[in-house]
Design a binder for these strands. Sequence first.
DNA 1: GCCGTTTTCGGCCCGACTGTTTTCAGTCG
Length: 583
Amino acid sequence: MLANMAAIMEIKGEVVFKSIAFSRAGRIVKDLAIDVKAALDDGSLARTPGIGQHTLRVIDQYARTGRSADYDELAGSLPAGLLELLEIPGLGPKTISLFWKERNIAGMGDLIKALDSGYLDGLKGIGPKKLDGIRAGIAFRQRSAGRILIGEAQPIARSLVERLRRVAGVEEAQIAGSLRRCRETIGDVDLLCSASHLSDGPAVAAAFVKFPEVQRIQGQGQTKASILTTDDLQVDLRIVPADSFGAALLYFTGSKEHNVKLRGLASARHCTLNEWGLYKAAEYDALQKKAGEAPALRSVAGRSEAEVYAALGLDFIEPELREDRGEVEAAGRGELPRLVGRSDIRGDLHTHTIASDGVATIEEMARTAVAMGYEYLAITDHSKGQTLANGLNEERLLRHVKEIRQVGRRLSGIKLLAGCEVDILADGTLDFEDAILAELDMVIASPHAALKQDALKATDRLLRAIDNRYVNIIGHPTGRMINSREGLPLDMAKIFKLAAANGTALEINASYQRLDLNEISARAAVQAGVKLAVNTDSHSTGGLQGMEFGLGVARRGWVRPQNVINCMGIARLEEFIAAKRRL
DNA sequence: GCCGTTTTCGGCCCGACTGTTTTCAGTCG
């Protein structure tokens, strides 16, 4: 609702800062780890920077009554159909407003008809190319579902970077943008490269737009180019000299909100920060600038990101934290967390084999884990309720356990844990009796079906599972699938409280379709004293490599190694499991 | 609309590219 209000203000041509303020308030509410009503009641929302008198009133009224008079009034002032027009790339608020006022365009249907009939021809400032651009934008919008999953974008981006590195004149090429920040979904791919000489820029841009995966060229200049790939992914490339690489990487990695905050800090230090570098404001303002050329001025910093942060009085901020969620302030105080990384991970605690729906054997999974440098690996095939996934019944499970232990004895260099991913049934009971679970080294309990329960039922269901002394990890707690299934509407505060109290870990499922818990819940869980487990849920040896996506979520959630049970050595992990059984 | 190491009023990040224009507005990141 707040984001809509911001959009409406944009189209109405209100002072842009008003729109920005509402948009920011919307983001703050969306990022809340606790319920909005709770944040209103305890006064924390009112104290949040960016929430002021007006936005607080709107949120408060909506939370109490389910309506907002301010929203209703604003929404009533223009046709609702105009808002979706903002989603068309190349079409912005000014043009939408023009179409509405001059040609009575009230929505997508009107716009398409008017484009077809020539009704928009002859408007001031609108020529044939602009109209073509809008047509292409609408077609793109209808073809593509919007943001794609990180695991889908990454291989495409990596192959483009490889190709870029081979282009003449390119020194260094790197992925930037939301992909570098490990967001769960990616709107477009941002790539950055440095050229040995900036004069090579146009040639690099020209080579880029001729890559075989290019479907359409959106733009091409001295220092940047933008293309649409054959699978409808937009890719933006920026080309800078090596001296500006750090500043440009910072700029192109974002987030936008993080950048805005850094530039504000630069201002306060009488400097100006842009993609070319950090400059003394007085010197920079006196300069004759030309688009597409590096400022003819020595920068204060710019070669590396670390240099720029240091010049602003900040510790280095990892890309995953750059969302303006308090990281800049923490960096200023020297209080950033040491984030969990790949080298902290000692094992994977959620994997499947051919015994249920995996494609690799116990031994194949184990050997891959050894090659990855893991100290332990848990084999956790499905329970009998997962009939489609060839779930194991009691008898098959016990045979499987025996086999896991046999393989474990035979292999050196890795400890195999005989486990199971047991279904949490709709009422919160588990798919196996305690007597069976007691035979296992470790238990994950996960919801797989009945994922449309209300908050009360769903929360009670998980609490029951957490309450079981044999359950060590709750797997993909909400059951969500990104872009396709909402998942259970859990009361996380209650879940965290019990999980922290009785030593049950919550999973960050690294499968890029799930990423469950998400980053917001992960951060709140850690604050509530809950232990996490970052697991791949892999069904093949290749799947074990997917750990990085789960780590991305954990890092975005400010998670430290000490918060993660699979960063423990085997002895401590076994004690973690044993402690709950003693309760 | 929000906010205070410049401020309770007056700012609020900054640059590249496109299209439609003869100097700039719009859009994007």
